[in-house]
């Protein structure tokens, strides 16, 4: 690998890589379980059951 030695890459993976993956997983769990998101999720999962009535409003309403 041009310029990047094997040891450098392993170093990055073991330091930055580890913490960013941990941070990411915590972030995702927080997002999924954040109480305020619950309403949004509930709405989204029910709204697909009946969505054939055409676009809401059309473009001009935006």
């Amino acid at each position: 690998m041009m310029g990047l030695s094997h040891d450098t890459i392993v170093g990055i993976a073991k330091s930055f890589g580890l913490f960013y993956l941990i941070a990411l997983s915590i972030g995702i769990c927080v997002y999924a379980f954040w109480p305020r998101n619950r309403g949004q999720f509930d709405r989204a999962k029910h709204s697909i059951l009946d969505d054939e009535n055409g676009p809401i409003g059309g473009e001009e309403s935006r």
Partner: peptide
């Protein structure tokens, strides 16, 4: 005609 069992689980498994 049933909503997905767990929406949260679908997010977690996505990531």
């Amino acid at each position: 005609q049933r909503p997905i069992y767990s929406y949260r689980l679908s997010i977690l498994s996505f990531w």
